[in-house]
């Protein structure tokens, strides 16, 4: 497993965020970036021939359990941000009739 390929996924995510034309596409891109970063971290904690860090397996020679604990938190945070962003996009749609970035940000303040 090559960390460089995962880093390419993260870069594709940032590219998608930069070129997204509507709000939903931006949220998809943030999801991709998040998953890529989590995969990178887990890969760094892993080594060949390591054991799964669950009590009941052989407790010597286990893989580093710290990244795994942190990444479960990160997954949950990522889903919270996604849910909040989508709720805000529904509100924006209800107000502006569209979710394209150019239309929504282009209006002057106070319509």
């Amino acid at each position: 497993m090559n960390p460089l390929l995962t880093f390419i996924v993260v870069l594709i995510g940032f590219y998608g965020l930069a070129t997204s034309k509507n709000i939903i596409k931006s949220v998809f891109s943030v999801t991709i970036i998040e998953s890529g970063i989590i995969l990178l971290f887990l890969n760094l904690g892993n080594f060949e021939g390591g054991g799964i860090p669950i009590v009941g397996e052989s407790l010597t020679n286990i893989v580093d359990p710290l990244p795994q604990a942190l990444m479960i938190t990160t997954i949950v945070i990522g889903s919270t941000v996604t849910a909040l962003a989508l709720m805000l996009s529904i509100k924006v749609f209800h107000h502006y009739g569209t979710v394209e970035w150019a239309e929504v940000l282009g209006r002057k303040d106070g319509e």
Partner: peptide, 27 residues
């Protein structure tokens, strides 16, 4: 109001992108 929704989503997405870069630094 409409302005505040669009400001909120702009804030959320831009800051989340920045904080994800912070996480990559921690890694």
């Amino acid at each position: 109001a409409g302005d505040s929704f669009r400001a909120a989503i702009y804030y959320l997405l831009l800051n989340t992108a920045g904080v994800l870069a912070f996480l990559l630094g921690i890694i």
